[in-house]
Design a protein around this nucleic acid. Sequence first.
DNA 1: GGTGCGCTTGACAACGTTGTCAACTTGCAC
DNA 2: GTGCAAGTTGACAACGTTGTCAAGCGCACC
Lengths: 345, 345
Amino acid sequence: MSRPTIRDVARHAGVSLKTVSRVINGEASVRDDTRERVQRAIDELDYAPDQAARNLRGATSHALGLVYDNPNPYYVISVQNGVLAACRDQDFGLQIHPCDSNAPDLADELRELVGHARLAGLVLAPPMSERMELIRYLAEHGIRFVRIISAAEDPADGYPCVYVDDRDAAYDITEHLIQLGHQRIGFLWGGAEHRSSPERFKGYESALKDYGIPLDKKLVIPGDYSFDDGFRGARRLFALREPPTAIFGSNDEIAAGVLAAAKANGIDVPYELSIAGFEDSPFSRQSWPALTTAKQATEDIARHAALRLIAELKPAGSGVIHLNRGFSPQLVIRDSTARVRTTAP
Amino acid sequence: MSRPTIRDVARHAGVSLKTVSRVINGEASVRDDTRERVQRAIDELDYAPDQAARNLRGATSHALGLVYDNPNPYYVISVQNGVLAACRDQDFGLQIHPCDSNAPDLADELRELVGHARLAGLVLAPPMSERMELIRYLAEHGIRFVRIISAAEDPADGYPCVYVDDRDAAYDITEHLIQLGHQRIGFLWGGAEHRSSPERFKGYESALKDYGIPLDKKLVIPGDYSFDDGFRGARRLFALREPPTAIFGSNDEIAAGVLAAAKANGIDVPYELSIAGFEDSPFSRQSWPALTTAKQATEDIARHAALRLIAELKPAGSGVIHLNRGFSPQLVIRDSTARVRTTAP
DNA sequence: GGTGCGCTTGACAACGTTGTCAACTTGCAC
DNA sequence: GTGCAAGTTGACAACGTTGTCAAGCGCACC
């Protein structure tokens, strides 16, 4: 009736509990024929180890936490699915933990989370992953983690991460606009608490520089990763004496806001104004016209991060060196960007 | 260094382990002064029970599973946050479990999930919550659950649920369109595997009937809860000899597809065509024009469902009778619906 | 004063796994 | 054949909690 335990498997295979445990955990010192016998017993009984018991006993628990504070459900779901794929693959549990990145006692909250649910480690999404004081606190308290961060290169700060080269992708988007003939390109910033924001700006800046286009500060508007700030920012740009012919919104939501503002002002996209976003959210495909953007392999990135953490967790001194891996978003050209019109239609 | 255990609390309060356990679990037979003393010790030591140990020993574990298969991240995140709020409140863990509702061995998969992670029960989102054969299977195998379903009234089938009256809300939306003067109102169905689809259709149907408008089958298009089906469905409606003056998409994604199709065909919204959606997804606010829709209190609904499940889990024979609770989405009027134009502009 | 009952409390085992450590087996050099 | 190291296996305790059961206490009742 009830699920089989390791005891049943041991009896079935004619070995001790401990040997079964060794097979389950892939430990080295088990003879091949014994291992096979045990494996067969496991398969026959359809045995799966009990998470709770496993986490209770071990110095090594089998559960991760995923910490995020992101208003964008598309991003969050992608990260969840990626981490979950890794956890299922490795037979780990996952405790999701949305939080407020500005909470004053976030560090304690996370420590409590780890203790309470006996988590082996945390996957940290931005912006938590980019708070160095938090990172140091966790490290000092012996909490294992991996960060998903925005960086043009490996930060090599001794703390594990997977990094996304937003700068490079933002460069590509800006370059695409320049190659369409645009010289006045507006830039709408994302939220200051995300490192991706300055990274994306740097990409924009450096593409302009490489093509000899001076940076006009009036074309650069601060804001948040939100539709509303996109809308407002766009209206400020439209009101300029010399408005831009293209606008690069730091993410798709901002770009959607720009699109709405353009519609509201009767500006035709893309013939009077080109718009580019960032992220490849589903609605970048579902707006009209569909948005040019940069596609992040978020699910893959997250899966990688979790696998990296799990691998690092395993045997302390296996001698394996784990490297931080980088990902680059890819330019996706759709219908919201077009060659700049040279004369009135 | 390490976290305090129930043993530390017992020593601190000068009582036995078991008494502390009783206080933690809110059992009745503890004298008030003892309870207070223990509670003080708990507070002073900042003690929190260990989930893994708790789940291991008990017939009653302290973890729920959330099962969903929904392409809409806004919906999923809302459900997650609602269930999570309940779990945090009640000191439960949560294992999320996205799945494929069409997988042939889903029932086994869920049984394995419950066993593997020692879950006390499952919160089932649509469409899993609406598969009666799955529901019966779970019940037969002693797996506790609560369903979030679409229904105009309590199904009273003996299995616990929280129900959402999509029919009523769809009636309101249709009525709103009729009151704006629309007589030819297109309807785009959602996915057939979701009970909300026929429910929303029934609301549409019955509003038409109440206002004496004959149902024209050419105006009713089958499809899925997706942007693409909204786009395609709208184009089929536009091609009719007598196209509709308003279109009711079964959710916001469909409505966004309709909006895009209208733009693509140069049809002005709302002056030439009114569009309504359903769900109040953020992008219903972020499209241009913003969509008229029905607002579901998804997070609240999910929180309720989880609390209901947890309450039912507790003492077997407490004599409390738990009732299924219903929720009604509310009409939200925005800019995508307008009075029908009587003459050409 | 003894009996029985209800309320409160505690001793102890048990949940299913892994860590520790010791014992056994095998292979190989002497 | 002996000695020794490496490889393999098992007995047992332990993780932190809850379920079971029985004991202690006070009180009402005969």
